Amino acid sequence: MTVTQTATGRQRRVYVPRPADSAPPPDPPIYTELLRLWADRGRTLPGCHDPEWAELAAPTVRRGQFSDSPAPPDDER
């Protein structure tokens, strides 16, 4: 953030984004080690696709719900 002076003399913080061509700083070693430990134990990593979560979070779609065909009788659901 950059600090600027206003006409009244009050300081104001202005967000100035970094240039798009600059790379983000590398993760601190403690986070790199934690990610390695989680990966070794088969856990889901931040920023990676999690197929189990995608399946659990997917909406349930019943036969006939989104088509013109009639829904099956209650005993077939």
Results as ranks from 00 to 15, higher is better:
D27L: 15
T2I: 10
S67L: 02
M1E: 11
E52C: 00
E76W: 14
P25H: 07
R41W: 07
P59H: 03
D75R: 11
T6M: 09
A7G: 07
L35H: 09
P28H: 11
R18W: 09
C48A: 14
A54R: 04
P17R: 04
P19K: 13
E52K: 06
R63W: 08
W53H: 11
M1Y: 10
S67H: 05
G47T: 05
V16F: 01
Q11K: 13
Y15V: 07
P72V: 06
R43M: 15
S67T: 15
V16S: 05
V61R: 03
L37I: 09
E33N: 07
D74M: 02
L37N: 06
R13Q: 12
Y31G: 00
A20K: 12
P24Q: 06
V16W: 05
P25T: 09
D21R: 06
A39T: 02
P59V: 07
D68I: 11
P51H: 00
R63H: 08
T6D: 07
G42M: 06
A7I: 01
Y15F: 14
A39P: 00
P17V: 03
G64T: 09
P26A: 14
E55V: 07
S22D: 10
D40W: 02
P70Q: 10
H49F: 15
S67N: 11
W38I: 10
L37C: 02
A7S: 12
L45N: 03
A58W: 01
R10Q: 14
T4C: 08
Q5T: 12
R62E: 08
P72Y: 07
T32M: 11
V61N: 01
R10S: 11
R13T: 04
I30Q: 14
R36D: 14
D74P: 14
E76K: 12
Q5W: 08
S67R: 10
A54F: 01
G47R: 03
P51D: 08
L56D: 02
P19R: 15
R13N: 08
P73W: 05
L35R: 15
P17L: 04
S69W: 04
P24G: 06
R63C: 03
P72I: 08
P51S: 10
P28M: 05
P17H: 06
D40Y: 02
E55Y: 08
E52W: 05
